[in-house]
């Protein structure tokens, strides 16, 4: 699998690819264009030039929901849950693209619509069970707005996996979490790849998380890719240090 594109002003001729079952981290200072990359891939924005390929097929110009149906799912840095829906419904809603029952079939409660509905329930319960005890039991029927911050992040990931993606885009999954939760999230991302079989592209600021999960790290600054390689390679790269610390720090180092 490869995802590649280039163009837009905030992103300059970026060439990025993710192999199957790989975890690639995107790092960079604020305003480097990391979230823009996610928006471009998921169709929220359209690149001015360049191409984005999933399994060799271009997804440029498709509506976001169509891109999701091609196997690309994401979470949001700013957490965009369906706050007034229950925890389970949040996950079930994301199965829309994978199910078929039309509104007329639902009106009439035709057998296959009911079967599908049962399958949706089971799948959602399965996706939530992935997070251990965090999102099961009484939590199923609670509105999403009642969840704690860390649980909201978990629910967003559960919701994204419910679209049955090939590649999962996680936008700062550990942002705003305490050290314990951050550690848990690091393990979880590894588990998503190993047990869930997802290919993962992740934006993260926390270098411990990046170190813990990444097969490969890509560093962005001002829309340019300034480094790519293993965590060690990127972390010691002069351009990266300069981007984070400023020119002088890099010189004194």
């Amino acid at each position: 699998m490869s995802v590649a594109f280039g163009g837009l002003q905030v992103i300059h001729a970026l060439d990025l690819h993710v192999d199957e079952h790989e975890i690639v981290s995107v790092i960079g200072p604020n305003g480097a264009g990391k979230t823009t990359v996610f928006n471009l891939i998921t169709g929220v924005h359209r690149p001015d030039s360049g191409d984005i390929l999933v399994d060799g097929e271009s997804i440029v110009g498709l509506a976001p929901h169509a891109i999701t149906n091609r196997g690309v799912a994401r979470t949001f840095q700013t957490l965009r849950l369906f706050l007034n829906m229950s925890v389970k419904e949040n996950v079930m809603a994301a199965e829309y693209g994978r199910t078929r029952a039309t509104i007329l079939e639902s009106f009439l409660q035709l057998p296959h619509a009911r079967r599908e509905e049962r399958a949706i329930h089971e799948l959602a319960e399965g996706k939530l069970a992935f997070f251990g005890q965090r999102l099961v039991g009484y939590r199923w029927d609670q509105p999403a707005f009642s969840l704690s911050y860390a649980n909201r992040r978990r629910l967003e990931i559960a919701r994204a996996t419910a679209t049955q993606p090939r590649i999962l885009l996680l936008d700062e999954p550990a942002a705003g979490m305490n050290p314990v939760e951050t550690h848990e999230m690091t393990e979880l991302i590894g588990k998503l790849r190993d047990d869930g079989g997802y290919t993962i592209l992740v934006i993260e600021h926390d270098m411990h998380v990046v170190e813990g999960i990444s097969d490969r790290v890509v560093a962005l600054d001002h829309g340019f890719k300034i480094a790519e390689g293993s965590y060690q390679q990127v972390a010691t790269n002069e351009l990266v240090v300069e981007a984070y610390m400023g020119l002088r720090s890099a010189e004194t180092k």
């Binding site: 965009r80 849950l81 369906f82 706050l83 829906m85 809603a93 693209g97 419910a162």
Partner: peptide, 17 residues
């Protein structure tokens, strides 16, 4: 309901808004 709560998130979560 998803579209009511957050149209962009709904669209990205495979709902043809």
């Amino acid at each position: 309901r998803a579209l009511r709560d957050d149209a962009l998130a709904a669209e990205v979560m495979s709902v043809p808004v």
